[in-house]
Simulated scan of single mutants.
Amino acid sequence: MPGRIQSIERAAAILRLMAGGARGLSLAEISRSLDLPKGTTLGILRTLQHVGFVEQDEATGQYQLGGGVLRLGTRYLDGNELRTRALNWADSLAARSGESVRIGTLHEERVLVVHHVFRPDDSRQTLEVGTLLPLHASALGKTLMAFDPLALAEESEFERPELPGYTERTITSRTALTAELESVRANGWAAELEELVEGEVAIAAPIRDRRGTAVGAIGLSGAVERLCDDRGLRMDQVSYVRDAARSISRELGAHPW
């Protein structure tokens, strides 16, 4: 039987050390804490940086956990499990709001719709499960960009001066999108006002797991004349969405907030 690989054990020890601290650690601190030579420690750190498991602060030179480790830790809940946990709440939201409901997760720089409940009327509708939505032009996407720590890092289009436009109302400016996401974080929900499809409005809120990490989003969508009134977006519909998001989050072990 093959023996243990020392370099992997040392890398794991470094990651555990970083995970246990609330701040970055210097090369000397890591080397001293694990009783490893600085040269050996530096070599492991550079390798972990290369694969995205460790990041180095350019200003201080200190090391901290990177997005690669975060991905491993937060993606234990896949779309199928999220859908299973959210089925009843999604149905309830559709009945309460009178609109169609979608649940989405982050997938390759887009929002993957993992569950879709039709609007509870007799109109002809198309099932949207498996549809990919743009992050910056959808309520589900804005929610993920605001609350999922991986979404912004994965949105390569976000680095461009101008983002793709879908209607005249699409936010295409990076500066404007940054301001929009700050507002989403402050409010706890996101809106999409004819930014992806003309005449359509959507509202979404984050679904969190037991660690408080956003693992998806739930939202409703419908015609602008139904979801808006003379004062703008109907806040009762916003409340319905947030209630559903909180309920699903509790199903996943999140603490009430």
Score class of each variant (00 low, 15 high):
residue 193 L to N: 13
residue 186 A to F: 09
residue 190 A to P: 08
residue 208 R to T: 14
residue 187 N to V: 01
residue 246 R to M: 14
residue 199 G to W: 02
residue 176 A to R: 15
residue 186 A to V: 01
residue 188 G to L: 06
residue 247 S to E: 14
residue 248 I to C: 06
residue 242 R to I: 09
residue 215 V to C: 06
residue 210 R to F: 12
residue 206 P to A: 01
residue 197 V to K: 09
residue 184 V to Q: 10
residue 193 L to W: 00
residue 201 V to L: 11
residue 181 L to K: 08
residue 178 T to C: 09
residue 202 A to K: 09
residue 245 A to N: 04
residue 231 R to F: 07
residue 207 I to D: 07
residue 190 A to R: 06
residue 184 V to F: 07
residue 248 I to G: 03
residue 186 A to N: 03
residue 210 R to Y: 13
residue 230 D to K: 12
residue 218 I to K: 02
residue 193 L to C: 08
residue 196 L to E: 05
residue 195 E to V: 12
residue 218 I to D: 01
residue 215 V to Q: 05
residue 244 A to N: 06
residue 180 E to M: 12
residue 235 M to Q: 15
residue 200 E to D: 05
residue 203 I to N: 03
residue 212 G to D: 12
residue 233 L to D: 02
residue 181 L to N: 09
residue 239 S to Y: 09
residue 229 D to L: 11
residue 238 V to H: 01
residue 194 E to K: 03
residue 236 D to L: 00
residue 237 Q to T: 03
residue 221 S to Y: 14
residue 239 S to H: 14
residue 237 Q to P: 00
residue 181 L to E: 09
residue 236 D to V: 01
residue 215 V to K: 06
residue 247 S to N: 14
residue 210 R to N: 11
residue 182 E to D: 14
residue 223 A to S: 13
residue 212 G to R: 12
residue 205 A to M: 03
residue 236 D to C: 01
residue 220 L to E: 04
residue 186 A to I: 00
residue 223 A to H: 10
residue 208 R to Y: 09
residue 208 R to S: 12
residue 206 P to S: 01
residue 246 R to W: 08
residue 232 G to M: 03
residue 182 E to S: 12
residue 229 D to T: 08
